[in-house]
Amino acid sequence: MTREQRMTEVFVEVADSLIDDFDLIDFLQQLSVRCMELLDVAAVGVLLADQHDILQTMAASDEHTRLLELFALQHDQGPCVDCYKSGAARTNINLTDPKVTAAWPAFAARAAETGFVATNTLPLRLRGRVIGVLALFQSDPDPLRDQDITLAQALADVATIAILQQRTLAHSELERGQLQYALTSRIVLEQAKGILAERWHVSVDEAFAAFRSYARAHHHQLGQLAREIANGTFDTTQIPHQATAPPRP
């Protein structure tokens, strides 16, 4: 398939999701994966600023803790914070150049350990305001071309639209309400991961993988299912998982 065909497919898929009742975290996660494939980068994350102006990871192309921690490390420093504060896209940031990374040494060290050599950050823009960041990580130093950057910004804008488009249970009219609902959904998901990990005696990553496979296979919305698990209204024995021996008493 040519790149144009793949791009067309992705935009059709995205538009279809936005018309239907969609689950925001699931949507952003799939958007991250598509973004990674289309732009041929190593990892993608969508970060949203919370009420304290701290960037929180909403979704990533790879939900492993290792990558999530790299995003989380940017609560007070890193290229994503710079992008959020300035509101301007910054592309082809060379993470191996000490002059470039001098402002955020902790982040640069962790990024290097994870195998990333370059990053690109694009703002999630909303009527002159910035609500978050789309981050692209590369494990090869080839700079992204202008057309890739344009595409990445379009995907960042799609993420913004999805966040504001989500049908919250109470139909919140305020933008802040939409953002809060998205952030809360992510927190519920983390709480549910912990519940499942402890119940099954597996890591949170393994718990999430089993949980997501089950949700996809049964057409459950990830966010809704996480809520039911956290509230104790869903029988989690229905979810197939790798069981390991519980710690001995």
Binding site: I54, Q56, A192, G194, I195
Partner: peptide, 25 residues
Amino acid sequence: SPHTLQHAVIHQATGMVSVQLALPL
């Protein structure tokens, strides 16, 4: 630090402890 309750790991640990000790979140 301020706003410390925002970290994902705290939410995960909250879920785990609720199962360990059979407590509400």
